Amino acid sequence: MRTSDTIAEIAKALNQFQSDVKQPEKSAENPYFKSKYVKLSQVITTFQKYGTKHGLSFIQYPVNGEHSIGVETLIMHVSGEWIKFDPFFLPIEKATAQGAGSATTYAKRYALSAALGIDSDEDDDGNQASQRNNGNQSQNEPRGQQSNVSNMTTHTASGKQIGLIKGLWKGSGGDSKSLDPWVKGKYKKPLDKLTTHEASGLIEKLQKRQNKKAEQKQEDADYSYNTSEFPPVEGDAPF
């Protein structure tokens, strides 16, 4: 998560929003899990009703991973302050427009609800929790797509995911021999036994690590370029 330099005003507005907001009705049904949830349109309507009067607005936009699609959520305030949340990614097993659209709709609903503190899913005391977080879909999504998403928590990671993890691990400076012991220590299972969901989460973490390294490298390069424009005066210590 990233924020503007100050967040005093947006924090106050979010506090007022959460004090005023009435949780939307869970009117949509998920036949796969026999549960109810709040549709994306209801989450947006709720925000428009209670958020705008406190000077809040939001933007959501899709971001692409190697084998996944995600959504970034930016909450803004009229003061100019903002809070940008890390992208919420979902793997795409079928690279079709319909599959990408369904995953994006789910990611937008889940990410916006989480950012605003809106309860959009039924709680079943943790039973099938990881499946539900990745299986609740819009009513307009095909049943096959629901099955694909829910299977992420039970199906073994694909060869492409394993290959991507190895590539990202190496690209982040990790030794290939240290990957398997690290995975066993983290997940209590070897790399090739990770579920699709676990592999997706690991891919996201490695991508973030690689992005941070790239950003740091760029910052170092920018700093080097900027200081080179101003050579030290005789007697001054060089940068």
Results as ranks from 00 to 15, higher is better:
Arg2Cys: 04
Thr3Gly: 13
Thr6Gln: 14
Ala8Val: 15
Glu9Ala: 07
Glu9Cys: 03
Gln16Glu: 07
Phe17Arg: 00
Asp20Trp: 03
Asp20Ser: 10
Lys26Gly: 09
Ser27Asn: 14
Glu29Cys: 11
Glu29Val: 15
Asn30Phe: 05
Pro31Ala: 15
Pro31Trp: 13
Phe33Ile: 12
Tyr37Val: 13
Val38Pro: 06
Lys39Ala: 14
Lys39His: 10
Leu40Cys: 09
Leu40Gly: 09
Val43Pro: 04
Ile44Gln: 11
Ile44Ala: 06
Thr45Glu: 15
Thr46Gln: 05
Lys49Tyr: 07
Tyr50Asp: 06
Thr52Ile: 09
Lys53His: 01
Gly55Phe: 05
Ile59Met: 06
Ile59Gln: 11
Gln60Val: 14
Gln60Phe: 09
Pro62Asp: 09
Asn64Pro: 01
Gly70Ile: 06
Val71His: 09
Val71Arg: 06
Thr73Arg: 09
Leu74Trp: 15
His77Pro: 04
His77Leu: 05
Val78Met: 06
Ser79Leu: 07
Ile83Trp: 03
Phe85Gly: 07
Phe85Ala: 09
Phe89Leu: 04
Pro91Asp: 13
Glu93Asp: 12
Ala103Trp: 04
Thr104Arg: 13
Leu116Tyr: 01
Gly117Thr: 00
Asp119Met: 02
Asp121Phe: 12
Gly126Ile: 06
Asn127Trp: 11
Ser130Pro: 04
Gln131Met: 14
Asn134Val: 15
Ser138Cys: 02
Asn140Phe: 09
Asn140Pro: 01
Pro142Trp: 05
Pro142Phe: 04
Arg143Glu: 09
Arg143Cys: 00
Gln145Ser: 10
Gln146Gly: 15
Ser147Trp: 14
Ser150Asp: 07
Asn151Thr: 10
Ser158Trp: 13
Lys160Thr: 12
Lys160Gly: 10
Lys160Pro: 04
Gln161Glu: 13
Ile162Gly: 12
Ile162Leu: 15
Gly171Ala: 07
Ser172Leu: 09
Ser172Ile: 11
Gly173Arg: 02
Gly174Ser: 05
Gly174Ile: 03
Lys177Asn: 14
Lys189Thr: 12
Pro190Phe: 11
Leu191Arg: 08
Leu191Gln: 08
Asp192Gly: 00
Lys193Tyr: 11
Leu194Tyr: 06
Thr195Asp: 02
His197Gln: 14
Gly201Ser: 10
Leu202Tyr: 07
Ile203Pro: 02
Lys205Trp: 08
Leu206Pro: 02
Gln207Ser: 10
Arg209Met: 14
Glu219Cys: 05
Glu219Gln: 14
Asp220Met: 15
Ala221Tyr: 04
Ser224Asp: 00
Tyr225Asn: 12
Thr227Asn: 05
Phe230Gly: 00
Phe230Thr: 01
Phe230Cys: 01
Pro232Cys: 03
Glu234Ile: 03
Gly235His: 01
Pro238Ser: 08
